[in-house]
């Protein structure tokens, strides 16, 4: 219950107009801070939904595939340069952002992540890494403004933000490959 409360408070906090305006005024913060925080808010709230409607998740998201698919689609949509501009100019899209990221990305992510095999988890991370590298290169190298509401320098910054995120995920993957948890964790857990 606590988790739901924290998630809900986070969502409310992020929706406050001054907070939203501040976070959206910088491109990279908009994409790499506000959006992930919205997903985290949903992630925290998911616990409540899982408890309340266990049958629904069990029935429709048995092995986690539909959930992770939904999560990926929502994330891909918000990676479009267009979507960010639209969120700033259109009220409808902005509201859709505050609904889709927590509830259509955060909630299914939590439910699915626990159900996926570690192989599939790695596949998901690898695909996001590749996507992030490509988005990063696109934002860094594109000679024109991709988003009308943000300056060129912010676009390059966002590109490097994507690259660093990808680098972090690569480090995590390498860590997963090189370090066998069985060597350290044994059966005590």
């Amino acid at each position: 219950m606590n988790q739901f409360l924290f998630g809900f408070l986070l969502l409310v906090f992020l929706a406050l107009p001054p907070v939203a305006n501040l976070l959206e005024s910088i491109m990279i913060v908009h994409m790499h801070m506000q959006m992930p925080l919205l997903v985290i808010a949903g992630f925290l709230m998911a616990y409540y939904f899982q408890k309340k409607y266990p049958a629904f998740f069990e029935k429709w998201n048995q092995r986690g595939y539909p959930g992770i698919l939904l999560f990926s689609i929502i994330m891909i949509y918000w990676m479009l340069p267009r979507a960010m501009d639209d969120a700033l100019t259109s009220q409808t899209v902005e509201i859709f952002k505050y609904i889709s990221l927590p509830f259509l990305a955060g909630v299914p992510l939590r439910d699915s992540w626990a159900k996926l095999t570690s192989f599939l988890k790695n596949i998901v991370i690898i695909s996001f890494t590749i996507m992030f590298i490509m988005m990063g290169l696109l934002y860094i190298a594109w000679p024109e403004q991709l988003c009308n509401n943000y300056l060129m320098i912010e676009q390059i910054t966002l590109g490097w933000g994507f690259i660093t995120m990808a680098a972090c995920m690569v480090i995590y993957l390498v860590y997963n490959v090189l370090i066998d948890p069985m060597q350290y964790e044994g059966l005590a857990e």
Partner: peptide, 25 residues
């Protein structure tokens, strides 16, 4: 491993914006 990745993400959050600005401009 996880803790370090989270640390790196926070470092990136803090330093990517100003460093890109300082180097490009």
């Amino acid at each position: 491993g996880r803790i370090i990745v989270i640390m790196l993400l926070l470092i990136a959050m803090a330093y990517v914006i100003p460093l890109v600005e300082m180097i490009i401009n």
